[in-house]
């Protein structure tokens, strides 16, 4: 899948080709987010920090799902930032049927909701479970894997901000190596998060052989919406992993949330791809690739790497190697045809 709608490829030079809307193309080719009638499933008055990537990603995804399913969507939310900032009594920012149970059980609760809609004879109602990376890759992983393995009719969306931000920025299994968090402080012999083997949930999801898996970014809206739309065209277990920068946890400016996400994609650390039944079916080629250091230097969580020295050089090179491996694996840098 290309990031750009097909109509726009024909007349390549068009003002704002990659923008949310484009008055020069037909309404269908514009992002859901450009529409006056978009659902605003997550509406104003929520208490997310300034420039919150997760607030953005959640609205993008749920609005796209609503559009794709004729507004017949219910959501189950894991505990976390998204839950806390949207539903503190007495106000909720959600505009759709929404249920929060616990931190680690969103996938299972969604299975239950899906089962209920089935037994009630309302299969047209589509169920989304959503959570942060902590609720997905760590504490909710068991339930998620069970939901996948049973191929329950649920789309699970992980809004990955690479740490436990709600509790004050602690490390999760999605925190990148070297990143500073409150539990991996940038002090001592190994400042920041350690180089483990990583826990690549999209690939773990693929290993379950579920019908659809995709990664997406708040910096690639058309792609994100297309993937959510595609996910809704499948039945069974589906998984979308959306990278959502956290200005607080990443130490980036609130105004740069989308840009930081964009750099993450451009350097190869966050590959955009999709897979069906365990096989990668497409990836989004990187437009104007950059070295990882250009991404790292936009965030204070990597500031300790920028102090020079052989050790830091080595670590940056290791991160670059991760990006290079992604680029190779998903064929992210292509020659023009």
């Amino acid at each position: 899948m290309e990031e750009m709608p097909r109509e726009q490829q024909v007349k390549f030079y068009q003002k704002g080709t990659y923008t949310v809307g484009n008055r020069l193309v037909n309404a269908k080719s514009r992002a859901v987010q450009s529409s006056i009638t978009r659902n605003n499933s997550l509406t104003s008055g929520h208490r997310a920090c300034q420039g919150c990537g997760e607030a953005l990603g959640a609205r993008y995804a749920i609005d796209a799902a609503m559009r794709a399913c004729n507004n017949r969507v219910m959501a189950v939310n894991a505990t976390g930032c998204l839950e806390v900032f949207t539903t503190p009594y007495p106000e909720t920012s959600w505009q759709i049927p929404w249920l929060h149970s616990l931190f680690g059980n969103a996938a299972a609760v969604a299975t239950g909701v899906a089962a209920a809609t089935r037994v009630k004879g309302k299969p047209e109602i589509r169920i989304i479970a959503q959570g942060g990376d902590g609720g997905t890759t760590d504490i909710g992983f068991g339930c998620l894997s069970g939901m996948f393995e049973r191929n329950d009719d649920v789309l699970y969306i992980c809004y990955d901000n690479e740490g436990y931000m709600n509790t004050g920025v602690q490390r999760s299994s999605a925190t990148p190596p070297t990143a500073r968090t409150a539990t991996t402080p940038a002090v001592g012999k190994e400042p920041g998060n350690v180089f483990g083997t990583g826990k690549n949930l999209p690939r773990i999801a693929m290993a379950h052989g579920i019908p659809y898996v995709a990664t997406a970014s708040v910096a690639a809206l058309h792609d994100l919406e297309a993937k959510v739309t595609k996910a809704m065209s499948f039945r069974g277990a589906r998984y979308i992993h959306i990278q959502v920068p956290c200005p607080l946890g990443w130490g980036s400016s609130p105004a740069s949330t989308i840009n930081v996400a964009r750099l993450s994609v451009k350097c190869g650390l966050f590959p955009l791809f999709e897979a069906e039944r365990g096989e990668v079916t497409s990836s989004v080629p990187i437009r104007n690739p950059i070295p990882v250091i250009d991404f790292l230097r936009t965030q204070r969580r990597f500031a300790h790497l920028m102090k020079g020295g052989e050790e830091n050089e080595r670590k940056i090179a290791k991160l670059q190697a991760i990006a290079d491996e992604n680029i190779r694996r998903y064929n992210l840098v292509r020659k023009e045809v």
Binding site: A115, V119, G142
Partner: peptide
Amino acid sequence: NCEYINVESEFAALSVAIGASAAGA
């Protein structure tokens, strides 16, 4: 007219029941 779901843990068992009950089942 009953969904019988084999889950992966007791935590999931009650969680599925929570979701189902909240959805009216």
